[in-house]
Amino acid sequence: MSEKVMENNRVTVIGTIVSDFTFSHAVFGEGFYLVDLSVSRLSEQADVIPLMVSERLMDVTRDYRGCTIEADGQFRSYNRHEGVKNRLVLSVFVREVQFLEEFTDYTKTNQIFLDGYICKEPIYRKTPLGREIADLLVAVNRPYGKSDYIPCIAWGRNARFASGFSVGTRIQIWGRVQSREYTKKLSETECEKRTAYEVSVSKLECCQ
């Protein structure tokens, strides 16, 4: 059962480490740390994606900045309490990692597959230039009754197709993990720059 569940959430990212490790949490004496990975796009821009890494998988006391790695794992979420609100925090939970001497095929630096369920009505809209966009929230099951809640964004024909999904619809998604900066208004006079993480959909299928 757990192997099947693991197959419904698969991520591979290849990039350069651009931060030190910071402690996140411990489970049964095993420490988990966050580190940022810069993943290049074909457009020569880059997504900076947080990786959740076990201290048993990498030496978290070392400085790996500038090193190129390939990380395989799952895109996971958890709710962080901020005052009276919860904030959805996303990262790639790393299961395997390998260091690369060099890498040239930038078409394969960022790949994700999700098999889950629509858990919120899709939000469909058009940009001022007429481009179609749909925002989806997909629940992907994990073992032991847990789920990850993954924001996804679809474009064009995929957006129009996704706009007709109802809550509970099972879908499969192929795409890439992307980072996006936005400004959060905290009060009438105070704003804060934040980074959102989501799946940019390249292909999706309805399984019902």
Rank of each mutant, 00 (worst) to 15 (best):
S2A: 14
M6I: 03
N9M: 07
T12E: 13
I14C: 10
D20S: 13
H25S: 06
F28P: 00
F28A: 12
E30M: 13
E30D: 10
G31C: 04
F32W: 12
F32H: 15
L34Q: 08
D36P: 02
S38E: 14
R41F: 09
E44A: 15
E44K: 15
Q45M: 11
Q45I: 02
V48P: 08
P50G: 06
L51Y: 03
E55R: 03
R56N: 15
L57T: 12
M58R: 08
Y64T: 02
C67V: 05
D72T: 07
G73R: 12
F75G: 00
R76H: 00
R76M: 04
Y78C: 04
R80M: 05
V84K: 15
N86D: 09
L88Q: 12
S91C: 06
V94A: 10
E96C: 10
T107R: 14
T109R: 08
N110S: 12
N110K: 13
I112N: 05
Y117L: 12
I118C: 07
E121G: 01
E121M: 07
P122L: 07
Y124M: 03
R125E: 01
P128M: 11
G130P: 05
G130H: 01
G130I: 05
R131Q: 09
A134D: 01
D135I: 11
V138W: 11
R142H: 13
P143N: 05
Y144E: 13
G145M: 11
K146N: 13
S147V: 07
D148L: 06
D148K: 08
D148A: 15
D148C: 13
I150L: 15
P151Y: 03
C152G: 04
W155E: 04
R157S: 10
R160P: 00
F165I: 02
V167M: 14
R170A: 07
G175S: 09
R176P: 00
Q178M: 14
Q178T: 11
Q178F: 05
R180K: 12
E181V: 04
E181K: 13
T183K: 15
T183W: 02
T183G: 06
K185H: 03
L186W: 04
S187N: 04
E190C: 04
E190G: 08
K193P: 00
T195Y: 01
E198A: 07
C206P: 00
